[in-house]
Design a protein around this nucleic acid. Structure first.
Lengths: 115, 115
DNA sequence: GCATCATATGCCTATATGAGAAAGTGTTGC
DNA sequence: GCAACACTTTCTCATATAGGCATATGATGC
């Protein structure tokens, strides 16, 4: 089977670099779709498709105003990502160098006990 | 073009639910590959492939011991994910309900100014 | 209604998996 | 050397995009 559909999962939605770029851009404020495409150097259909994915996972909200459609950040979905990654905080604080040193020290002690 | 190769990007690596499960499992300590497969109900080759992806993006380290190969968490790569998502913190704290209310209030004021 | 602007969709192609099955590699112990 | 064990790699299949292009849809103004 292929990867799960991107439209159902925030983690998949942010796996695409251009979509992360869109989210970052939208921190500066809402924009019509064309502005997103222009500012990020994407084609209009391309931006539209990425925006759709982001909309479907709830990371952006859209507001229609006349012919335009303004997209705004709705970062609440990123909170779960932040929390998930945060659950590993104690592990990245453990220096693997120190761990290695510790393991080697244990081995050293073993050897001296035996000899 | 298709999606960027999963092997080059932490965001892609964690887009797959089973790989997130592996990372979570490894918080409880290093394990041989077979144990990962067993504990998560995956096939052994399946676990091996996911572990390879995680290894290639640096999220796990492996240590050979006899016939076995122990995999251990190396969560440092998740720090960048945590920080990226954390950059949106001020935005998910803004309640969109309050925003809506604020926008409506502005509209109200506009109307009263005009009338 | 019609032309125009702003977006969204449909279609097609090349690519990237994820899963399952089978075969290959490396290590241990007899 | 050989059998057994623990993994990894290879192959094939089905599916899911991302891009590019052309077209359709929606709203506005005349």
């Amino acid at each position: 089977m292929a990867r799960a559909p991107t439209t159902s999962d925030v983690f998949n939605a942010i796996a695409e670099p251009q979509r992360r770029d869109i989210l970052t851009l939208l921190r500066a404020g809402e924009r019509p779709a064309t502005a997103v495409a222009d500012e990020l150097g994407m084609t209009q259909p391309g931006a539209s498709k990425h925006l759709r994915v982001l909309r479907e996972v709830g990371l952006v909200k859209d507001r229609r105003e006349g012919k335009q459609r303004f997209y705004a950040l709705d970062a609440r979905g990123l909170q779960s990502v932040h929390e998930w990654a945060g659950g590993f905080e104690q592990f990245w604080n453990e220096s693997f160098d120190r761990l290695d040193a510790y393991v080697q020290q244990l081995a050293q002690e073993d050897r001296s006990t035996i000899s």
